[in-house]
Amino acid sequence: MIRVRCCLLVALLSLVMPAMADIAIVVNTGSGVSHLTRSDAVNIFMGRYRKLPSGNPALPLDVAPFKARFYRALVNKNLAEINSYWARLVFSGENSPPQQVATVDEMRQIVTSNPGAVGYLDSREVSPDLHVVLILSE
């Protein structure tokens, strides 16, 4: 009986909740990077250590339409907290945040032309010209 109720609940939730895909972190197909660990991704996007496993310097890109979802999934922080984190590093002259891009197309353009670029997008929007190195589930 309990199981039936659970199943009903899950079915109901899946009807009510919009289908949420995951966030895919992507690089250039010729970057020589097969995958990144979560801590690699944190190091690159939070500016702790911006080097790819291939040895190339990493150029992280913040993609405006997915930025809030990305940081929620990566470090469980909202955009105010991310801004607060960067305010400390920017105004002590220690570091700079990722390059900000306005659209997925802009991100795609930079990633496909730069072997060090690292971007992200909704996993349903990944195209063959991008190589997925990590999926962040939401």
Binding site: N83, S84, Y85, A87, R88, L89, F91, S92, G93, E94
Partner: peptide, 23 residues
């Protein structure tokens, strides 16, 4: 490497102590 006028990074957070938004 940095050269010039720098914040005094003597304690954790001491070089950003005037950036209220950061804490």
């Amino acid at each position: 490497l940095r050269a010039g006028r720098l914040g005094w990074d003597v304690f954790q957070l001491s070089d950003s102590r005037y950036v209220g938004y950061a804490y």
